[in-house]
């Protein structure tokens, strides 16, 4: 009897342990699936973006020819004489982007070189996060600053400057993306192995020679990745240009007059009372597609360059 009871409780114990292990295994598998689902959400997001953009864009191109869209130099969807030439919006985007990059790349790269090669560790730890605050300021604040501080300031030197213009919007946008350039470039330069530098120093080189002849070329793909990402960011920036650059689509490279960027146009239509479902309304999706395609290529190129750089040095 006693032996029997023992066997019975042993059996129960084994059963319990097996069951417990099964529960644990089930829980493990369940959690892994759940986490997988979380990461699939990002794929769904991209799919959603492409689906929303394409479904409206295809409808739009049933009414407007692709050739006209790409070659017409006027953008007047709201007028009776409608023109749908993306060039005039694209030129606005490119002018502001060019100005922003002209500010952010030199300043960002010089400061990255300084932080990576000249500054002490302590300084780097203080200055880097401070610089990143520049990217944390809400863009609507930069818009206000461009419209009400930078433009009036510039007008004292450039009398012909309009109240809305690409110049001040571009300049302020450039300030905003400095940390994007400097931080990523500095990471790249910092990752260049000390050995490369020491070799040059041993030959009696100065810091500046080491920085520009050794470190800079070695980190070039990482730096290029940063610059491309900055271009992508400038092209997609919305509020600064919507507030300070104007709402007049114009096929021009003159930075002193009001223009309109692709992003600012989307804001303009969203704020207006254009009825949903009309050809005029579908223009925001077409603009969105244009924007998405351009930034997509830039982002992917930047990602590939950055990865190639990491494979070399990490």
């Amino acid at each position: 009897m006693v032996g029997n009871r023992h066997a019975c409780s042993l059996y129960l114990l084994i059963w319990f342990m097996l069951k417990r292990n099964n529960i644990v295994k089930f829980k493990e598998a369940l959690i892994e699936r759940l986490l997988l689902c979380c990461s699939l959400l990002s794929v769904l997001t991209t799919a959603g973006i492409i689906w929303v953009l394409l479904s409206e864009t295809i409808g739009f191109f049933k009414h407007v020819s692709v050739i006209d869209f790409l070659t017409d130099t006027q953008w007047t969807p709201m007028f009776t004489n409608k023109h749908f030439g993306i060039l005039s919006l694209l030129s606005g985007t490119l002018v502001t982007t060019f100005i922003a990059i002209a500010v952010a790349v030199p300043l960002g790269l010089i400061s990255a070189t300084y932080l990576s090669e000249y500054a002490t560790d302590k300084m780097r730890h203080i200055i880097k996060p401070l610089l990143e605050i520049l990217a944390a300021v809400p863009t609507v604040v930069y818009g206000y600053f461009a419209l009400l501080f930078v433009t009036p300031l510039l007008r004292q030197f450039i009398p012909g400057l309009s109240g809305f213009n690409a110049l001040s919007a571009g300049l302020v946008m450039g300030i905003m993306i400095i940390p994007l350039v400097s931080s990523l470039s500095e990471d790249a330069m910092h990752a260049v192995p000390m050995g490369l530098r020491e070799g040059a120093y041993a030959l009696g080189s100065h810091k500046i020679q080491v920085a520009f002849k050794i470190v800079f070329p070695a980190a070039l793909s990482g730096i290029t990745a940063a610059v491309i990402l900055a271009v992508s960011r400038a092209i997609g920036e919305t509020m600064i240009v919507a507030i300070a650059a104007g709402q007049q689509p114009k096929f021009t490279v003159n930075p002193l007059v009001p223009i309109e960027t692709i992003t600012a146009y989307i804001v303009q239509i969203s704020l207006g009372d254009t009825p949903h479902g009309t050809l005029e309304y579908s223009t925001i999706f077409v603009c969105g597609t244009t924007l998405f395609v351009i930034t997509f290529f830039l982002n992917v190129i930047s990602f590939k360059l950055k990865r190639r750089f990491q494979e070399i040095y990490e």
Binding site: I49, G236, F292, N299
Partner: peptide, 14 residues
């Protein structure tokens, strides 16, 4: 990586 760089206004359109 691409989603991190997609302009915010595109999310609005989505």
């Amino acid at each position: 990586a691409n989603l991190a760089g997609v302009p915010s206004i595109i999310y609005g359109i989505l």
